[in-house]
Amino acid sequence: MRRLLALSSAVLLLAGVTVPANAHRQLRVPGAEYQQLAQLDDLTTTGTVASGHTNPADYVGLTHSGLPQQSGVPGLQIDGYFPDTSHTNTNHGWNHDAQFVIRLPRRWNGGLVVSGSPGVRAQYANDRAISDYVLSLGYAYAATDKGNTGAAFYTDGVRPGDAIVEWNLRTTQLARAARATVAQHYGRPAREVIAAGISNGGYLVRWQLENHPELYTRGVDLEGTLWTAAGPNLFTYLPQAIKGYENHDQGAIVAAGFDPRSDFVWDYHYTVYWKLTQRIYAAELDPAYTGTEADYDYARRPEAHQAVARIALTGNIRKPLVTIHGTYDSLLPISQDSDVYAEMAEHTGLHTYQRVEAGNHVDGLVDTYPDRLVPLVPYLQRAIRTPS
Rank of each mutant, 00 (worst) to 15 (best):
L209P: 08
Y216A: 02
V254F: 00
A283F: 09
L238S: 14
E192F: 05
E192R: 06
A294E: 03
F264W: 09
P232L: 04
I253H: 02
A256F: 07
T236M: 00
P302K: 08
A294V: 00
H212Q: 15
E293N: 14
A299T: 14
E192H: 04
R301D: 11
E303Y: 14
E223I: 11
Y289Q: 10
F235M: 02
S199K: 00
L222P: 04
Y273T: 04
T236Y: 00
Q208S: 12
G244K: 02
V193D: 03
G201T: 04
A255C: 11
V254D: 02
L285Y: 05
Q208I: 02
V220P: 07
H305N: 07
R218C: 12
V272L: 08
A252R: 03
V265W: 03
L276P: 03
A195Q: 01
T292I: 10
I242E: 01
D263T: 07
A230K: 13
L234V: 12
G291S: 06
G201M: 02
G202A: 08
A196P: 04
A255V: 14
V272H: 09
W266S: 04
G244P: 06
P239D: 12
D249M: 06
A256M: 05
A288M: 11
Y237Q: 09
D297F: 06
R218Q: 12
S262E: 02
A294Y: 00
F264S: 11
L226Q: 04
A195F: 02
A282Y: 12
F258G: 01
L209D: 02
G251I: 00
A229V: 10
L226Y: 06
A283T: 13
T225L: 06
A283C: 07
G244A: 08
P287L: 10
T290E: 12
E293A: 15
E303H: 15
P287E: 10
A252H: 00
W227Q: 10
Y289C: 10
G231H: 06
P232D: 02
W274R: 12
L276C: 03
E293K: 11
I194C: 08
L226P: 06
W207H: 07
Y237C: 11
E246G: 08
E214Y: 07
V254L: 00
T290F: 10
Y270R: 14
Y298N: 07
R218L: 12
A230D: 12
F264G: 10
A195L: 07
D297I: 08
A195I: 02
Q240Y: 00
L204K: 01
L226M: 03
K243S: 13
H305R: 13
A283K: 13
Y237V: 12
H269Y: 03
A255R: 13
D221G: 02
T236P: 00
V265A: 05
Q240F: 00
E210T: 14
D295W: 09
Y268N: 01
Q208P: 08
P232N: 04
N200D: 06
D221F: 01
